[in-house]
Design a protein around this nucleic acid. Sequence first.
DNA 1: GTCTATACCCCGATAGAC
DNA 2: GTCTATCGGGGTATAGAC
Lengths: 246, 246
Amino acid sequence: MADRAPTARALARQAVHASILAAARARLTEEGPSQLSLRAVARDVGMVSSAVYRYFPSRDDLLTALLIADYDELGATVEAAEQAAAPAPGARWVAVCRAIRTWSIAHPGDFALLFGSPVPGYVAPRATVEPASRTTLALVRVVADATADASDVGSDGRRGSPTAPPTAPGMVADAVSAGVASLREFGTELPEEVLLRTLMAWTTVFGTVSFELFGHYVGSVSDGAAYFDEVIARLADDLGFTALFD
Amino acid sequence: MADRAPTARALARQAVHASILAAARARLTEEGPSQLSLRAVARDVGMVSSAVYRYFPSRDDLLTALLIADYDELGATVEAAEQAAAPAPGARWVAVCRAIRTWSIAHPGDFALLFGSPVPGYVAPRATVEPASRTTLALVRVVADATADASDVGSDGRRGSPTAPPTAPGMVADAVSAGVASLREFGTELPEEVLLRTLMAWTTVFGTVSFELFGHYVGSVSDGAAYFDEVIARLADDLGFTALFD
DNA sequence: GTCTATACCCCGATAGAC
DNA sequence: GTCTATCGGGGTATAGAC
């Protein structure tokens, strides 16, 4: 009795918890993260607002749960796409990048929550950084494998080594040592040059999705998918991928 | 009497109009665009809310005015920085990019309004696209001059031509012809390859500022300014600039 | 043009009955 | 755990006196 009853309760609690989260995510697609309100979610799920407070102590806690759920869903989607692609790093790179864009376009409200303007009064707790790094890690992992492959193959003669330093004089060491150091703690042991280029590529990928979703390409880019493919192809070229498509 | 009186009125109107706008911009730095309310700015400026409606018929009109003012201020700042730099395209490129970052960091609320998540219920009218293109045009102009310079100088043997197509097979023509065509109407006559790379660089510049301002580099980049300089140096290298610094 | 007053909505959060 | 009721704020927008 003290064994089964709490379990049933816990299951019911979890179910309600999940339905509230789902309703919140649905609201998010048409309302923007800063407009999200506990009362509106409560209405959608058929509860009264005060009942929701038994599951989420405050609106900020609901936001945090949403943030974690979204980061996890994006990360899982990206990881699945990476594994579905062949072991070849080029195919995995394309799969990962396309998965990022596809998920973002399918969930614009969630994308705005994750990568848009921060919610004014809200500060994300530390619990969100680990799910957030899931997608980033996938990108780093693919690039790491690609550079490993490139080392095996050697130079093809058409282009310089992907790790060749650029022409900018004197500021490379500063920026790299000061900036990207902590990325190394993620477990990879890429040279700083590659880490920096990966960071730039990561920024460009999400910047491209962001500009497309937020309307800044209106009048400049008509076919978002084709443009995005073009962008990630050039990024891959810059990162030293050898063969993108099978 | 019918000549001078209306002018004084118009001046007074303009002054109040400007003070309302200024108060709205001040609010913007700590509230987020979607939370901006006519009542709050009315309080700040010492008016009653209904009086503000004589100057801005609705909250959306205030948002539009803010949008135009911010785009214009950013554009003017960028243009001033470009002109202050020497005629050399490399110096102008650095000046323009740094001006974008500096202005954005100094006005995070305005940056969120311009480049963050769109305000949920609001759609920007066409009047905003012309001020918005001011900054973009500055970037295109600098790149155009740089490629013109590069054509004069010829190849230096260390790197390939900036207009050399990448290795991605078959999708270049599609993306370029489908996507970037309308950028040409801006008055420049760059080859599509350069336009595409400029579009990517534009995305990366603002993506980098966005990631820095929105906190996505926490844990990865410690010195934002140094990292940004590194990024724009590599972009310049990719775009075919010859000498960045004097 | 500016004021008061008002109609009619929204929200977060809590108290206390059940 | 869920409910009603409530406190105490917020907002857009309009009407009408001055």
